[in-house]
Each structure stands twice: as C-alpha cells, then as structure tokens.
Design a protein around this nucleic acid. Structure first.
Length: 566
DNA sequence: GGACGGTGAAACTTCAGGTTGCCTC
DNA sequence: GAAGTTTCACCGTCC
C-alpha cells in the first residue's frame, strides 16, 4: 500500500490489535499478528477470539482436532482449542507439529481468520494473509545488541521477513504490513529505521569457534584439506575471508584449533612436518588451553599469529601430512562439535569405569551439558532450591565436573540438572501435561529436546563403539530407546512392535502382557480389548506370527535395534 | 461479625527459532 | 525493558 493512503480502522475495542483483527475479518480477509513471546501470542489470540466470536462447525471441528493432538490434552491444548472456536489461533514452537500443521491448513482454507505468532511464521511460509500486523518491534535478549541483556529492536531483516508474509502473489494482489508506535517521536524513529531503513549487513558465521571447529575437522575428514596450502586455499575463498580480509588472524586461529584436534586425537600427523601447533606453543595471549576451550559462541579474539613457533611456521606447506583418525572421522560424520565429542569421551570413559551399571540420570546430565543441547531449561527462581537439592542427592558423583557456584557457568550447570531431571521424568513415563506444569516445557519443545537427545545418545553409542567401551554400549542403547519413547525399561520389548508406543505398551504391560511371548500367547480378542482396536490387535499378531527376529529388524523409521547390543 | 468475592495496585517473573545423526515405513 | 502473572490489601455484599 502507498504510505500516503490512510488506513481507517474503526475503534471497536481499546486494543488496536483487536480493532485491526475485527476490521480484517469484516473486509473478508485474514491476518498474521507477530508478537515477541509465546505467552504474548497465546494471550493475544485469546483476546482476539473473545472479540471475534465466530464459532461455526468448521472451527469446532478444528478445535476438537487441536485438543486431541495428545493422549491427554495439556492446558495449552485447551487454550488453543478455545481460541480456534472463536476464529483465531496462536502458533509457536511449543505446539506439537500436528497442531502447527492443523493451524496452517485451517488458515489456508479460510477457517481460522487470525494467527498470533512468534517468528515461527516469519519466513518461508505461503499463507493467505492480507495483513501482517507486527505488534512487537522490540524483543528481549540475554545478550542484547550491545552485549548486555534487555529489550532491543528486532533486525530490519526480520521485520522485512514478517512484512513479506502479507499479500502473497498466490492469494492476493496486494497486502498490508502494519506496525505500531507508542508516541510521535517513536513513530518517526520506527519509520526511519524500519520503513525507510536499510537491512543489516550479513556477516559470516565461520568466525564462531564451534562452527569453525566442526568444519575444520570435517574438511580434514573428507580429505579436502591435507596440508597448509590446501587449508589456506580453501579458507581464502570463503565469505569470511572475503569480508574480513585478515588471513593472518584466520590462519592463527585455525592453527590453534588444529592443536586441540590433535591433542584430542581426532587428527594425526607428525609434529615436525605438519601444520600443527601444539597446545603449549599457543594461547599465551588468550590463555586458552585446549582442555578449557571456550564454550560460548565466541568470535575470534586478538591475533595469535606471532605466538606461533617459527619452526612450525616454516614447515613444508605442500606436504600432505594431516589426516583424521578413525575417531575424528566418525565425529565429523556425526556433525558433532569436536569440543562436545571431547567432553562426551571424557564423560563416557568415566561411566565405563563405574561400578555396576551407571544410572541414566548421569548420562542424561552428560548430554545435557553439551553445546548441542542448548537452549537448556532455565531454572526459575522458585525452582532453585529444588534443583540444588536434586544436585545434592547426586553427591558430587556426576560425569561432568560441578563448577563453583561463584563461577559464571554455574547457572548453566544448574540448567543442565533441570534439563536432565526433565528427561528422567520423561523416561519415567510422565505425560506432557505433568511436564508442562512441573518444568514449564511445552509439548513441541519436548519433541525438539527428545530429538536432540536421541542424536547425542546415538553419537555416544558410536563413540563408545570406537573407543571399545563395551560396558556402556547396551546401557546407552537402552537409554536411547527409552528417550525416543519416553518409557520405562520394562516396556522396551513391547515397544519393538510397530503401532505400539508408550501409551499402548503401558496398557498391555498393566494387563499382564509384558513380553513379546506374552503377546504371542494372548488371544486376539484380549489384545483387541486392551488396545481398543481390533485392527491393531491383528496387526500385532501378524507381526508376532513372523519370525521374531524379522519383527525386531523391521520397525519404524530411525528406530534402533536392541538386538545389535545383545 | 465473619465468610466470600470482586477489584485494582504492587510485586514478581519471564522472555524466538531451528540444523545436524541414523534409517527406510 | 516490558508484558503477563501472581499476590495481596481493600472494599462491598450476603448470610
């Protein structure tokens, strides 16, 4: 729309967002409302639904579907269903993927008129929204624009992404993007910054150390880099080098990371003729020992170029002398940050020496301490005592060393304890509603966390294989299976059946069908009664009618095979 | 007079998202 | 930094 055109919206309510929502529906259109937090998205959707009061059969059906996304609806499901009944919905990462898809399709077919969302819908979606209403242009950040926390303006690029959701060519000839200002001075500022402003420059992320560590190892593992010349050739052609033009600094940082990789035995090569720099030859300036490498996404510090020993600098640049070890090769294939892999290896080696079988909690805490598991579940003020007492119960016997409570990383450590407690309760079969109430984790986030844990546990199994940590194999494989399903160990045999998840397996188990043998012995009608489905009972019988081994090998997508570890 | 409910101010709490591994229905 | 939630004091009403 031309900026000069006046957009007249009747004030039927005190909230401008609700007025716009009402107007949008009145002109027969749909809108997306972008807000800063998940909580705001839910509240805004609720208020809009309350004012719209659309209520029709299609909405009721969609609401019913939203409610039945989980075996037992959570408060979030109920809130969503109640919004949908009124004609609006909220959309954020805390919803299950089923609910997100439902909302998108109901919006696409015109049933739902308004969606209040976080940036989940800002990019890459093609929805029939005539208006993109950007209610919040400020958002909280732990590390704000200038290095300290607080509210900061969202990037212009993100604003443009949101605007781009309005008036999609496949649905409309034009669209409207609406932003808000609290005062006249803010109006001027917002207009200059967003409407007439230039989008931010894009910066290379290669300078972030975990990214560089991962890529460096992968380049070596795939054989793309074998000597200094190849290394510098490759990096000099990257966007990072193009942007910063300081190859000396890049080179010295790479040398430092190579030192770490060698120290951890992820790469090999002789010291004299390789491009390695050992840990003791570097780091004077940053005082960073490989073992204590910085955990945060850190952009390179001051150049270490002059600290590199001359004899190392003077090595043969053309000689292929650098290779990934089998361990390094596998780490690269697993896409693990080498520092994470190193920390997992230390933890797993401790676990292997544990007397008896190590408790799942300790392994869960080990994976919850990795960079890959972030963001962790934040410890709220009122939970602090409970989390600390859970930590005390472990009696200092965790696989990850506990930092002093005066250290900055102590907060993260406590968050890793809370995250592991959540995982523990998940594998003890507590449902989504309970986890939402106790840990504040929404169903969609549970799914994301479980998927991450699954990857890290799979990686741990692979590391244990290579390192010949025999004892841990089966423990880790069992734990991975339990995390995948959110189930206790006793359900593992039943979970190998297709169509049987943790809810059905629990039903069977509680009805004395505890093993595949029990299921085989039980008659179809009993199984049908327990499972509440004759078709499923027949399917289970069919699976059991095959050779048991075949059933164990078939299974679902990505499911692990316990038989491998027996 | 006590229990109960409604209201509003003050105090307190919390704060986006998504990619990667396996595998093959 | 600001929105949203919780807590608490206060007041009016009812039994």
């Amino acid at each position: 729309m031309d900026e000069k055109d006046e957009l007249e919206i009747k004030e039927e309510n005190q909230s401008p967002v609700i007025n716009i929502a009402l107007d949008t529906v009145k002109i027969g259109k749909q809108a997306l409302v972008f807000v800063a937090t998940r909580q705001s998205a839910e509240k805004a959707a609720e208020e809009i639904a309350h004012s719209l009061k659309l209520n029709n059969d299609a909405l009721n059906a969609a609401a019913e579907e939203a409610l039945s996304a989980l075996a037992r609806p959570t408060k979030q499901c109920e809130r969503l269903a109640s919004c949908i009944k009124g004609g609006s919905a909220f959309h954020h990462s805390g919803l299950t993927s089923k609910q997100r898809q439902l909302i998108e399709s109901s919006f696409r077919n015109g049933t739902i008129k308004i969606i209040c969302c976080t940036p989940t819908l800002a990019a890459g979606v093609d929805l029939p929204a005539y208006r993109a209403v950007i209610r919040d242009l400020k958002r909280f950040s732990e590390r704000g624009d200038y290095g300290y926390g607080g509210m900061g303006w969202i990037p212009v690029l993100e604003y443009l992404q949101m605007c781009g959701r309005a008036g999609r060519p496949s649905f409309d000839n034009e669209g409207q993007a609406i932003i808000f200002a609290d005062s006249q001075s803010e109006e001027k500022e917002v207009s200059q910054h967003y409407i007439h402003g230039e989008p931010e420059e894009i910066y290379s992320k290669l300078a972030v150390e975990p990214v560089l560590r991962t890529h460096l190892l992968s380049l070596i593992a795939t054989g793309m880099i074998g000597n200094r010349k190849e290394m510098m050739d490759f990096f000099s052609k990257t966007f990072w080098a193009h942007q910063y033009k300081n190859l000396d600094q890049l080179e010295s940082t790479i040398e430092r990371i190579l030192g770490m990789l060698r120290e951890w035995e992820f790469i090999s090569g002789s010291r004299e003729d390789s491009l390695f720099v050992t840990a003791d030859k570097i780091g004077n300036e940053s005082n960073t020992q490989p073992q204590q490498a910085v955990r945060h996404d850190r952009v390179f510090g001051p150049s270490l170029g002059n600290d590199i020993a001359p004899e190392v600098r003077g090595m043969n640049p053309m000689k292929n002398s650098i290779k990934a070890t089998p361990l390094g090769q596998r780490i690269a294939e697993l896409y693990l940050d080498p520092l994470t892999a190193h920390e997992l290896i230390i933890g797993l080696s401790k676990a292997e020496k544990w007397q008896g079988e190590i408790e799942p909690f300790k392994l869960l805490q080990l994976i919850s301490s990795t960079l890959e598991m972030r963001p962790l579940l934040r410890v709220k003020t009122k939970e602090l005592e409970e989390i600390q007492s859970a930590l005390l119960e472990q009696g200092g016997s965790l696989l990850v060393e506990e930092p002093s409570m005066y250290e900055e990383k102590y907060e993260d450590f406590l968050a890793s304890i809370k995250t592991s407690l959540f995982f523990q309760e998940w594998i003890d079969e507590n449902d989504e509603e309970y986890l939402l109430e106790k840990y504040g984790i929404r169903p969609g986030e549970i799914h994301a966390k479980v998927e991450n844990a699954d990857w890290l546990l799979y990686s741990s199994v692979e590391l244990a294989k290579i390192l010949r940590l025999q004892k841990l194999h089966r423990t880790l494989a069992k734990l991975r299976f339990r995390v995948q399903y959110g189930a206790r160990e006793e359900l593992l045999p039943l979970l190998q059946l297709k169509g049987i998840g943790r809810v059905r397996a629990r039903k069977l188990f509680n009805n004395k069908v505890k093993t595949l043998g029990d299921a085989k012995a039980a008659d179809v009608s009993t199984l049908a009664q327990i499972l509440g489905s004759g078709k499923l009972a027949l399917d289970v019988k069919e699976q059991l009618g095959q050779k048991i081994e075949a059933v164990r090998e078939g299974k679902r997508k990505g499911q692990i095979n316990l038989a491998d570890y027996e």
